[in-house]
Design a protein around this nucleic acid. Structure first.
Lengths: 132, 132
DNA sequence: ATGCTTATTGATAATGATTATCAAGAAGGG
DNA sequence: CCCTTCTTGATAATCATTATCAATAAGCAT
């Protein structure tokens, strides 16, 4: 039977309080300040298991590191190409996108994701400071 | 000055004749049959340089391996979750997506990509054979 | 409470993709 | 044909992630 360990509670609470689509390493660093004994492997493991059982989700975005978020109604993301941070996009999810145009396709479409890429507020500021 | 080496010609010709959004390793394997002396590092290097100079593009899709394609008018992709192959989506590119809804956002949107995910024709067949 | 079973953890090695390093080799101008 | 310097090939290094496995600890039964 699945056991309710302290490590699981801590990792889950960390993601719940972070709200910024963190990577596993970011969750680890966040936790590590207060709980230095929790290992990185455990954080990866718990985040992954929670994605498998549907409690969390991997953010479907083109970054070499995986980002995680709480299970949410479907929505789109904005991805900063400077700092690689992820934000929720302010436009509604549109399921009709996958209904139209695929009638004659032999690819079985299960879902879609949209990634808006560009530069986040913080990184725009940094660019101004550096006169770029 | 940039030099026109045989390795560059071979890698470029490989990608031009492949048409299936291959990964660097797939390009390497394709080349390796005929040119076993070309090293993997060279294939990664040339593909990357060609993306920097605009000759090729990285496919903007959520896979741990990078996929490459020839420079193309913008379009969307379908990504098979079984075999990780990439296909062009049969719906038109719609730039109006990034015009609407971001007026009050402080994120500077430079572009967008849509990934349709599901199961490709080949993998659907395999599933049928295995009675899944 | 105590003990037992076994899921889970922590530490670390292994993996896989990609990049960095650097001596040897080759493009292309002179 | 030579010389400079860009490229290459081989390999080590890096980075994210997963696998391994002995030690630990949940949570049930006693």
């Amino acid at each position: 039977m699945e056991r309710n360990t302290l490590q699981k509670q801590i990792v889950k609470n960390a993601l719940k309080s972070m709200h910024n689509h963190p990577t596993a390493t970011e969750v680890y660093n966040y936790i590590h300040k207060d709980y230095p004994s929790i290992s990185k492997a455990t954080v990866f493991r718990i985040l992954n298991n929670c994605c498998t059982n549907g409690e969390f989700m991997k953010v479907d975005v083109n970054d070499k590191e995986a980002h995680y978020e709480l299970k949410n109604p479907p929505h789109y993301h904005m991805h900063c190409r400077i700092c690689n941070k992820i934000f929720d996009a302010p436009i509604p999810f549109d399921d009709s996108l996958i209904k139209k145009g695929f009638e004659n396709s032999d690819f079985f479409v299960e879902g879609h994701s949209i990634e808006f890429y560009g530069v986040c507020k913080e990184c725009q500021k940094k660019k101004e400071i550096n006169n770029e």
